[in-house]
Write a protein that binds this DNA or RNA. Structure first.
Lengths: 248, 248
DNA sequence: CCGTGTCTGTCCGCTTGCGTACCGTGAGTT
DNA sequence: AACTCACGGTACGCAAGCGGACAGACACGG
């Protein structure tokens, strides 16, 4: 369904696409297209949420930072989601740092407009809550993965999640950045990436990683990848009619 | 405020206590008191959610289990919360395994009744969404903590979180159980607990841990403890009036 | 009072990943 | 063309935690 829309149509985003035409029409005038600058911080930990962002092909990371300087990504947001869900949960501040991971377009919306539509209690309300459930599941899975799985599996999973969101196997990412994301040392990424390359899963050079063998990599990474993906696909297929039926 | 209620009053639970009398009155007839059997599974991963549980002094764990048999806790629920939030997010199945960690009373409510009240869009709606935000924050912090902090700090944090929920420094817990919770080996817990005991933070014997020096332990554990606690205290102080004001 | 099963202490070698540091090299700039 | 600097490869000793296994200790029921 998204394929038939122009590449920069807000309907590339699954949440917006899931809205019935009438509901979408109320939001549309307030959506602003914005180029996402690579690495830009959208929200600071405990910082205000003024806009929410609906990625089209961009990817956004939610990163937890500790006092000791360590950092790990706890969740990602792509075309399937929206940044700043806390806003609809009644808290206008961000729990963690949120940054642009990979650019390539998003639309943004003022929180006030979002809340206005959300509080009508119609489709947007339901879609965002379902998304919240799935996002929560992803964060929970990440918590488990961070504790139980090893660096190569985690790195592989992360690359695949990237691929799914930006829809490309070419990922402009440095080892330094990857280190922040999966929560290991920069040198650790070099070692880990080498083993993935030796297995033929990926290729890379200076700030650029290519997934060379998608199927093989999918076979290699931990279950967490599939679990989260399945969850997103399941809710993706729920339109708001189906949702009402389920509620009976 | 909860202190003036009898020990088994549903109002021991912060969510129920946060409701205006009228809203609470609509729910009250459907609340069933239930003794929580230690170790009992409330929901299975992907299993149905028929009832939600409001702990009074019990503690409930949300645990992620992997194919390889590993497990970690990703979140806890005590008097400040409710199990089964997914139900109000429009998904009637549990993301993870949810089990009773420590008994001592809870009230439960049929999901249908919960949704009926939730969909009025009044106090319960807002309170549960705010709780969802905070729960999400806790899971995210756990994800970071699992990756960046070491076993002794994590164990200490977990014991303190227990203490806060059951309001006692006496915790009937075996090493085996703790191992599941913090995601390390049973033998690892023995070693870790020993170091905490040598520092004078805790004492323990066969299935029973006592926090011996609360202040010292609080000083020892990682920041994650304070961060999550602060978040819960902040929302605890938001009554639904204050929330409406913020929404303007 | 004894037996049985649960809970805990401890030990071994081993793997993963850390912290730190140094050097090569590619890319873009002037 | 030379320079600069961000990026990546590698290496070293070290700490944390794993997997597995075994033995002692306590609790409870018969």
């Amino acid at each position: 369904m998204s394929a038939q829309n122009p590449a920069n149509s807000p309907l590339q985003n699954s949440i917006l696409a899931a809205l019935p035409p009438k509901d979408y029409a109320r939001l549309a005038p307030h959506l602003e297209f914005c180029e996402m600058e690579n690495g830009k911080t959208l929200y600071l930990p405990n910082g205000p949420i003024d806009y929410v962002y609906f990625p089209l092909r961009a990817m956004i990371s939610v990163v937890a930072v500790t006092a000791s300087g360590g950092s790990v990504e706890v969740g990602v947001i792509g075309r399937e989601g929206m940044s700043g869900i806390s806003a609809v949960l009644g808290v206008a501040k961000s729990a963690d740092e949120v940054m642009v991971q990979l650019p390539d377009g998003a639309v943004r919306l003022e929180v006030a407009k979002l809340l206005q539509e959300f509080s009508r209690g119609e489709a947007l309300h339901d879609v965002l809550l379902t998304y919240t459930h799935t996002f929560l599941k992803m964060v929970a899975q990440t918590a488990a993965c961070n504790r139980l799985h090893h660096a190569p599996e985690r790195l592989g999973r992360w690359l695949l999640m990237c691929r799914d969101r930006v829809q490309s196997t070419e990922l402009p990412l440095t080892h330094e950045f990857l280190a922040m994301m999966i929560g290991i040392r920069r040198a650790g990424v070099s070692e880990t990436a080498l083993t993935l390359q030796e297995k033929g899963f990926i290729r890379y050079k200076r700030g650029h990683i290519t997934i060379a063998d998608e199927k093989a990599l999918e076979g290699f990474v931990c279950e967490c990848y599939e679990i989260v993906k399945a969850e997103f696909e399941e809710i993706g297929s729920l339109n708001s009619e189906a949702r009402k039926t389920l509620a009976q």
